[in-house]
Design a protein around this nucleic acid. Structure first.
Length: 259
DNA sequence: ATGACTCGACTATCGAGA
């Protein structure tokens, strides 16, 4: 089974590119972030035409997460939030969707942007990561052999080399954010993509020729539980998807898993 | 070329992204 994660930055603006990617790569499941629409606004037809079904979660024009998966695959146990997912202003935002495919539990995650080190959104971001890690630690305690992949836009650059110039950043690289990210490793999740593709960014700002100058960030990850980590055979970061007409500012991250 | 942001929204500037 091949799975992928991609912050598509509006699925309605990007439907042709996303479906072209699926058609080309034939990944079995794609977790999307920032679909920026409600389920009833999702461009289902374009996905159905190439043999994919979609489950989407979105409340408004912000955030929004979804899975596209091959129509032959069974989908089970869909959840539209993780346990104790924090609220922002009394709303559980559309930033997580979980579903099980072939006994592999996938989460498509859009971690809040902190905006600034002293911004209320930063506290929200850190709490989001803390509670996500706590929920997964609890899950692994109950079921140590669970095959889980936490994938999405984490909005954290764990290493200095994950940004083109450390001095340009305050958020994404701060110690509290990096500690919140490292918590996943501490409970047993691993970033196999890092081992297989050590030097690549996953995001380049639209502005200032960032992509041609390779001024990027590595902030999109697919973290695997111990039982799933041993089944990861290959990984790629689809840099080509940042080129051409109307790209997202993020590119897909792909994992190949043996059954 | 990988080229100087882009998206969706109370359709016209603006918040948000990172």
């Amino acid at each position: 089974m091949r799975i992928a994660t991609w912050n598509v930055n509006s699925v309605r603006a990007r439907a042709a590119r996303v479906t072209a990617f699926l058609d080309r790569t034939q990944v079995d499941v794609l977790g999307m972030q920032e679909i920026k629409c409600k389920p009833e606004q999702f461009p289902y037809a374009a996905f159905e035409e190439i043999g994919y079904k979609v489950i989407a979660h979105g409340l408004n024009q912000w955030n929004g997460v979804a899975f596209a998966y091959k129509e032959s695959l069974d989908i089970q146990d869909v959840e539209l939030e993780f346990p104790s997912q924090p609220m922002f202003k009394d709303i559980v935002e559309a930033r997580a969707i979980g579903a099980t495919f072939n006994d592999v539990r996938l989460w498509s995650l859009y971690v809040p942007h902190g905006r600034g080190l002293d911004d209320p959104h930063m506290e929200y971001k850190l709490e989001f990561l803390d509670r996500l890690a706590a929920s997964q630690a609890e899950q692994l305690e109950m079921e140590p052999e669970a095959q889980i992949c936490l994938m999405g836009d984490f909005n954290v650059a764990p290493l200095d080399s994950d940004v083109y110039n450390l001095e340009m950043f305050e958020t994404h690289v701060s110690e509290p954010e990096r500690q919140a990210f490292e918590a996943f490793e501490q409970i047993g999740f691993e970033d196999r993509v890092r081992e297989l593709v050590p030097d690549e960014y996953t995001y380049w700002d639209y502005k200032d020729l960032c992509f041609p100058l390779n001024k990027g960030m590595r902030i999109d990850f697919a973290l695997t539980s111990p039982a799933l980590t041993q089944n990861v055979n290959a990984a790629s970061i689809e840099r080509e998807e940042r080129k051409g007409e109307g790209p997202s500012d993020h590119v897909p991250v792909v994992l190949e898993i043996s059954d």
